[in-house]
Design a protein around this nucleic acid. Structure first.
Lengths: 120, 120
DNA sequence: TCCATATTCAACCGGTTGGTTAAATACCCT
DNA sequence: AGGGTATTTAACCAACCGGTTGAATATGGA
C-alpha cells in the first residue's frame, strides 16, 4: 500500500537507521558491508534497508568486482521539499491573512485565540 | 521503535491520506468529521490518522462545543527541511569537488563515470 | 431529562515491516 | 576447479499499521 513515489521516500526516511545510512552516503559512496559495519544488525538487514532506499529512488548501485557500491541520489530530496514548501507557504499565507484581519478589526493580539494543546 | 521526532514526522507523512489531510488543513482548520467526509473510510480511521499527525506534532486540537477542530502546526516542517537540506548540501558539495577534480585531471566530462542503475 | 451530534476507545483482522538464520549467488584470485 | 569475499534470497517470527465494527464518552439543545 502507498506505492507512490512521495510515500516511498517519506517511508524510507522514517527509519533512523536508513536516515543514518543516507547521512553517511552524503559524504561518499559505500558498499553494504562498509555501511553495515557500525551497526549491531546483520549485513542482511542493512541490505534490506538499502533495497528500501533504492526502491524510493534515494540510492543507486554500481558494480566494482564483488562490491556493489551505493550512491546517494540527492535529487529525490527536491520531491519532498517541493511538497513541504507548498503547504508550509499556504499555511503561512493563511496565518498572515488571519493576522491582518485581526489587526484590522482591532481584536486581541494574534496567536492568543485558541487553546493549542500542541504535542510536547 | 523509532519514536524520535523526525521519525514520527516522516512516518506520519508517508501515508497519502495523511498527506492529503495536511494539505487540506493548510487551507484552514477543520473537524474530524469534516476531514473524513471526502474519504471512503470510517470517521474512526480518520480519527486515528489525526492522532498520528498529532503525535508527530504536525497537528494541534482545540475545543468548540462537541467539535475538536484540527490545526496545522507548520513549524514542524522546518525539522524536515533542515535535515534534508543538510545532506543535500553535503552531497552536492562532494559532487562539485569531484567535478572540479575531474576537470583538473582533464578526464572525461563529469557524470559519465559509473553505471548508475537508478530506479525508474 | 432525553436525544442527537462529535469524537474516541477497545477489540479484532490481514498485510507489512524489521529483524533473524541458513542457503544461494556472483565475482575474483591462485 | 576450488576457495574466499560480497551480497542477495528464502523462510520464518514478533511487532506494527490501517482498516473495520461496536461501545463509550462528551457536549449542546429541546
Amino acid at each position: 500500500m502507498a506505492d507512490d513515489r512521495l510515500s516511498l521516500v517519506f517511508s524510507a526516511l522514517a527509519d533512523p537507521t536508513r536516515r543514518d545510512i543516507v547521512a553517511r552516503l552524503a559524504t561518499g559512496d559505500a558498499t553494504v558491508n562498509e555501511l553495515a559495519e557500525p551497526y549491531e544488525v546483520t549485513v542482511q538487514a542493512v541490505s534490506k534497508h538499502i533495497k528500501v532506499l533504492q526502491d524510493a529512488g534515494l540510492v543507486s548501485r554500481s558494480r566494482d568486482a564483488q562490491r556493489r557500491p551505493c550512491h546517494l541520489e540527492a535529487e529525490v530530496f527536491d520531491l519532498m521539499t517541493q511538497w513541504i514548501e507548498r503547504y508550509r507557504r499556504e499555511a503561512e499565507d493563511r496565518f498572515r491573512r488571519l493576522d491582518a484581519l485581526l489587526e484590522e478589526v482591532g481584536d486581541q493580539p494574534a496567536g492568543t485565540t485558541a487553546t493549542t494543546e500542541a504535542a510536547s
